[in-house]
């Protein structure tokens, strides 16, 4: 069963309610489904489509555009090694080579125990801290081969469970918009200037 579960349906409806058009919630809902199942299943695509009022093909079309959505199971930990300019200049190739040997898989592969998926990644916005990598998108700066081995050991032993959630969990804090404080969606159905915004005076 990989449609959204009941708790996530409630959350999904709340997220949809924040946008003037439901379809805007497509990507957040795909993240939600990936958090629930570890990857985006066909049933989840169909369910997201129902919720946002789009076709499954439209949601699939959106989902496949974005690098973060996976359509088959990946490891508990997604290890992304940056290979863009500054990381490349400072040893990204060596780090990737080492990672492939240490994990025993090529880039794109998943270890037999289902713990690690190794990927080439593009710029991670940490260029001064090269070479960089991410584990489930959490940054690891100035990596060395020794630091990599230690990190893999710690992850495998569960020593970083408190810091790095399993693949699919994007952020552990969610925005809450309390109903009694919300200004409300700026609906397309009310095409007036906001009450607090004085329209420019009409030209004589």
């Amino acid at each position: 069963m990989s449609r959204l579960n009941e708790a996530n349906i409630i959350l999904a409806k709340e997220i949809i309610g924040r946008y003037p058009k439901a379809r805007s919630a497509t990507i957040p809902l795909l993240h939600l489904s990936q958090q629930q199942n570890g990857y985006v299943t066909n049933a989840a695509i169909a369910h997201v489509a129902e919720l946002v009022g789009a076709t499954s093909a439209e949601v699939l079309g959106t989902a496949t555009f974005y690098e973060m959505f996976k359509f088959e199971p990946v490891g508990k930990y997604l290890v992304n090694i940056c290979g863009t300019m500054s990381c490349q200049l400072l040893g990204a190739d060596e780090l990737m080579h080492h990672a492939e040997e240490r994990l025993g898989v090529k880039a794109g592969g998943t270890t037999a125990d289902g713990m690690f998926t190794l990927e080439h990644a593009e710029c991670q916005a940490a260029c001064t801290e090269a070479p960089n990598m991410q584990v489930n998108y959490r940054h690891c700066h100035r990596m060395t081969t020794n630091a990599f081995d230690q990190l893999i050991e710690d992850l495998a032993a569960g020593r970083l469970d408190g810091e790095i959630p399993p693949h699919g969990t994007l952020a552990r804090v969610r925005q809450q918009i309390p109903a009694d404080k919300a200004a409300g969606v700026a609906s397309l159905a009310s095409p007036a200037a906001p009450a607090w915004f004085p329209a420019p005076e009409a030209k004589p």
Partner: peptide, 20 residues
């Protein structure tokens, strides 16, 4: 949110997730 700092100014900020 609604009536920011007691004024008539009201606006919501919605956090949106990208996906790479």
């Amino acid at each position: 949110g609604r009536n920011i700092l007691g004024s008539s100014f009201s606006v919501d900020i919605v956090l949106h997730w990208g996906a790479g």
